[in-house]
Amino acid sequence: MNWFFRFMNSSVGKKIIMATTGLLLCSFLIIHLFGNLFLYGGPELFNTYVERLASVKPLIRVIEVLLALIFLFHILNSLWLTLGNRKANPVKYDVNRTRDNSSFFSRYMGITGSIIFIFLAVHLSTFWYKFQIDHEGGQFYRIVTGNTVGFNNPYITGLYILAMILLGFHLRHGFQSAFQTFGIRYNKYGKLIEAIAVLFWFAIPLGFVLIPIYFGLLKGGF
């Protein structure tokens, strides 16, 4: 197991953990957005969908625990890397024209990630909590579109939209960066990775953003 700890402790090993957990979290986005799309089908369809999920609760719980662990690894690992990087670069330049040599998205991964984390905490303590414990007898659709924790609450909607835009920024760099870390960005798969990246940094965040816009701003009109 010596090789394993050496690998995990190395800078490249830590990056590989970052990339693996990041891509796993990306795959969760697809499933989550797929579920959210049921909202457009109206209260009945959405409530039935959520109840269907509730019928496979043990499986959902296992997935939730796995997801939490992946999140935890991704976050703690990023903190570990950031601390190391700060130590490697303690004295800043008086003038540093970073704009000339790197993208905005690549330089602010920590900030976009941190705001997404705050959103995640709010998201879990509102939607997730309500869905699991306090769902008023299966009124899932009403929770989502309502004005307590739902999209008729301008704060919830505002944070949701902001976080999804920043998620797009995060994945604009993160998705392709993960493949660079695996060493497979610049080969015959390069173009394919670039195309799939657009799905993750643009299409999926847009899909999420449209939900609060439709159910909050257009339909609800708080």
Binding site: N9, S11, V12, N85, N101, S106
Partner: peptide, 18 residues
């Protein structure tokens, strides 16, 4: 080389491309 690089106190790559 990676082990030596880490030992010398260089940071990790963020793929910014700078």
């Amino acid at each position: 080389l990676i082990a030596a690089m880490d030992m010398e106190g260089f940071g990790a790559c963020t793929n910014t491309g700078a």
